[in-house]
Design a protein around this nucleic acid. Structure first.
Lengths: 117, 117
DNA sequence: CCAACCTTGACACGGCAGTGATAAGGTTGG
DNA sequence: CCAACCTTATCACTGCCGTGTCAAGGTTGG
């Protein structure tokens, strides 16, 4: 075989084997399988896993966020409906307690990182 | 005052008063306040609340999804990074167990609705 | 053949989302 | 003035997210 097994890929990418299976279940990175069912991670998957990790930490996202972003790209109706709602929402972030509306999206992550109280 | 109080708005829109406060905390619909701090829902807010509910149920979304969509619209760098990753992901949905990668995003909701086992 | 590795499934756990209920206290309209 | 309503804060509960770990069983390379 010309790819890495799950544990090798885990050590290479910094994810845990458990998370690699989880990421696959989320439909974000699905490696090929050998005849016996072993996952085989090729250069493409390894690359995608590395950049995915970067993406998540850099922007403080969850796997669901990425899955949702894909839905937005693939479901025109969804994208249109969401944009329509957002467009009709002149939400004045200035009137909200500064940083409150945004922190809602990131609060859990910030807590996880020990940034927020 | 020329708007509805929170309980009136709740009955009008179908949300519970509790959820109206929660939606506000999520930064999605923030009504004006009277001098004493009472929330006053005007026609705009009522409209937004109604369509928001439609949006969520129609497409099976969470409040976080909408918050994330707004981040995507407002943070160019984020949008670019996400799109770059998705673009570099020729994820073959055809090879995944049919409906599996998508159901991941919607599984919880379907379970909630008693659709999935 | 066998140690080392893989697979799926399940239990566990802390944390957050969504939601209701309840308490303590301020506001309002008739 | 007072019943009815509002506010924030808090406790509680279900269910999912992210993760680790362990069990039972199949695969592989030397």
């Amino acid at each position: 075989m010309d790819g890495l097994t799950i544990n090798e890929a885990a050590q290479t990418t910094g994810w845990s084997a458990r998370m690699l299976r989880y990421v696959e279940q989320a439909g974000l990175v699905s490696p090929e399988r050998t005849g016996a069912g072993y996952r085989i991670y090729g250069p493409g998957e390894l690359q995608r896993l590395a950049t995915l990790k970067e993406l998540l930490t850099r922007h403080d996202l969850s796997l669901s966020d990425i899955a949702f972003a894909r839905r937005l790209e693939q479901d025109e109706r969804l994208a249109a409906d969401v944009q329509a709602w957002l467009a009709a929402t002149p939400e004045r972030p200035a009137e909200v307690a500064p940083g409150d509306w945004l922190s809602f999206e990131q609060l859990r992550h910030q807590r996880l990182l020990g940034i927020a109280p």
